[in-house]
């Protein structure tokens, strides 16, 4: 039984590993990805023996959706592991990167939330690899593991601490069935749930935690 990977995990593939794609590879891929760089687990329906991954391109909106062979996954790093390393503290560009400063300032509140949390997006990539991915205008993307619906007061308090930070912070709640934006969850009403089979609108946000899936984590099969 291979270890299941979760959306946003970073995976390093064995050298010469085959990546498969459903469409033509973008022109930038060979120049911007090599097996020394991780790929990012994305949400998609499973294919036996393969895992859906994405590769970051040179521009922030550039992503390439690919499939990697599970057997060729060497090392994996979760967003929580990136956070636990606290790499922003010693980062040479801390003074120039608002996303890292925001992380430093937000760290005590995240720890106090009692929820498992991790760093995703360009901040996670840069902290995990040392490769520059962040710019002065980059947002900070975080996830909170929510195997059960989080206590409203806890996440509300966290959301309030975001206001004074030097950059925008996007927090995604990782429910047992997919990802929900914290802002939308706090707003009340319908929420968009990102699942392995595509996005869904939930009239009732608690439907992201169906009784039989509570305490489970969403997995990429």
């Amino acid at each position: 039984m291979l270890k299941p990977y979760l959306p946003h995990d970073l995976l390093w593939l064995a050298p010469r590993s085959a990546l498969a794609t459903d469409t033509e590879l973008p022109a930038w891929l060979p120049q911007h990805w090599h097996p020394g760089l991780p790929v990012v687990v994305r949400r998609a329906s499973s294919r036996p023996g393969w895992i859906a991954v994405g590769v970051r391109g040179p521009l922030r909106w550039q992503r390439c959706a690919l499939w990697a062979r599970l057997q060729q996954v060497g090392r994996a790093l979760s967003p929580e592991q990136v956070a636990a390393q606290q790499g922003w503290r010693q980062h040479p560009r801390l003074a120039a990167l608002p996303a890292l400063q925001a992380l430093q300032q937000l760290h005590p509140a995240l720890q106090a939330s009692g929820l498992a949390w991790g760093i995703t997006g360009s901040a996670g990539f840069e902290l995990a690899t040392g490769q520059p991915a962040l710019g002065p205008a980059s947002d900070l993307d975080l996830l909170l593991r929510c195997p059960q619906p989080p206590a409203r007061a806890v996440v509300q308090a966290l959301a309030e601490t975001l206001a004074g930070l030097p950059c925008r912070v996007d927090i995604q709640l990782q429910t047992p069935t997919g990802g929900v934006a914290l802002d939308e969850w706090l707003r009340g009403g319908r929420v968009l749930l990102k699942t392995a089979s595509g996005p869904l609108l939930l009239d009732e946000p608690l439907a992201a935690w169906p009784a039989h899936r509570q305490n489970h984590v969403e997995q990429c099969p």
Binding site: D170, A181, D183, E184, L192
Partner: peptide, 8 residues
């Protein structure tokens, strides 16, 4: 509707 967040 929607949110200011990556991928949204």
């Amino acid at each position: 509707v929607g949110v200011v967040a990556s991928g949204d």
